[in-house]
Design a protein around this nucleic acid. Structure first.
Lengths: 216, 216
DNA sequence: CGTGTGATTGAAGCCTTTCAACGGCGGTGG
DNA sequence: CCACCGCCGTTGAAAGGCTTCAATCACACG
């Protein structure tokens, strides 16, 4: 019988899951608003997990335009590169804490297999999200993109009032739009009584079905 | 010293690399133009490798628009999902042969570790390509997208005359444009003496630097 | 209460899309 | 072998959506 990788993970030689190892052995680091956790092309020496706050991954095009890879929220692992270097830089949106642990430590305590499995799982998830995002950007209008984004945010917390951790520019760079288009679209959705903004970064969904129809 | 995954691959317990196993044990299957190799949401039961011809991965949006994931050429592995199901369907562009082998067979002959390593490597490559593609679609104009595409194609073969295996519709769905825009843009690039089309699917690069400047 | 940053709004322009017609090449059948 | 047919690609004109440039507004901070 071949030693299946996945089946080896919980075996005796690897007592702890990767998240547990990160929590126990990792160093919590506090980052200020807009601070960089790691830079693009940095060696992928550490693993990271969001404790509090929100993290964004960023990349710049040669013409200076900014592409936002994804957002990571409390509990999310990030920076688990399958390759030797980070392909995006990572920055915290608001002041926050990130648990940091060396790959070598994870390897020693959780086992190479567990780490590889975690990296594969994370890479796979990331690929799925990126593919869906590609679909969003290549096939959908500004209104549909913004609607999908708001719906995602609303689904992240069950509260009636949703707090956005990112500003308009981040939304724009994430959705492949300009900041003005994002702003205008939000106003439109509000005028249509689909969402309501109590403040620039706080909204509530008024007509979920309409939002879902737009986001499809 | 920890046993790095990569370093274990060629070890005694895994005599053959995954590509070698595919070649030796896989079944070559002939597919006709536009035939489907596997469908979206199919169970990822097999691994595939292009022997001849070209393969495209495809996904449909809920509004009917088509998104082209990527193209795969002779020698390329494809369909190595990290998850249980295919997230795109795969179709052959022109008549071609695909080497097919069950994952269970690969696991038995190359070892679970080698297969996982191959899947991770492939998923990582795929993620990198998808991220770059996302950048292309979210930041760049039609001309830049088409230029980047032609440059990629030109780099695929050293011949002065490049043969395109795909039609305009595939290019359009890959680049997030309409077929008309692709066609117009090609005409523009030709009028600018940057490329020259001998036929709809055969072109040569006249000014590589100009093409590179556009593609950046 | 002033200042500065982030968000909104307005107007104009441009690029891409849409709808439509035409052209050309390859394949088939006479 | 030629003629016809159909598909794929090209071209045209008009419309629309997003961007760009610019000014105003709102809110937090000193």
């Amino acid at each position: 019988m071949s030693q299946a990788y996945a089946s080896r993970t919980p075996a005796s030689e690897e007592a702890m899951g990767i998240v547990e190892v990160m929590d126990r052995l990792g160093t919590p680091m506090r980052f200020a608003r807009n601070a960089e956790v790691y830079a693009q092309d940095d060696e992928a020496e550490f693993l990271y997990r969001v404790v509090s706050g929100t993290v964004r991954t960023v990349r710049f095009a040669s013409d200076g335009r900014r592409l936002l890879g994804d957002f990571y929220y409390a509990g999310d692992l990030f920076g688990l590169e399958a390759g030797p270097r980070h392909r995006f830089s990572a920055e915290v949106l608001t002041d926050g804490v990130v648990q940091v642990l060396k790959r070598t430590a994870v390897r020693a305590f959780a086992g190479e297999a567990a780490m590889q499995a975690a990296i594969l799982a994370e890479t796979h998830k990331e690929l799925g999200r990126t593919q869906s995002h590609l679909m969003l950007l290549s096939c959908r209008s500004a209104r549909e993109r913004v609607a999908a984004f708001l719906l995602n945010q609303a689904d992240r917390c069950p509260h009636p009032a949703v707090e956005l951790p990112m500003g308009r520019q981040d939304m724009a760079d994430y959705l492949g739009l300009t900041i003005e288009t994002v702003s205008r679209t939000l106003t439109q959705l509000q005028d249509a009584a689909i969402v309501e903004f109590a403040a620039a970064r706080r909204f509530s969904v008024k007509q979920r079905d309409a939002l879902e129809r737009l986001a499809e």
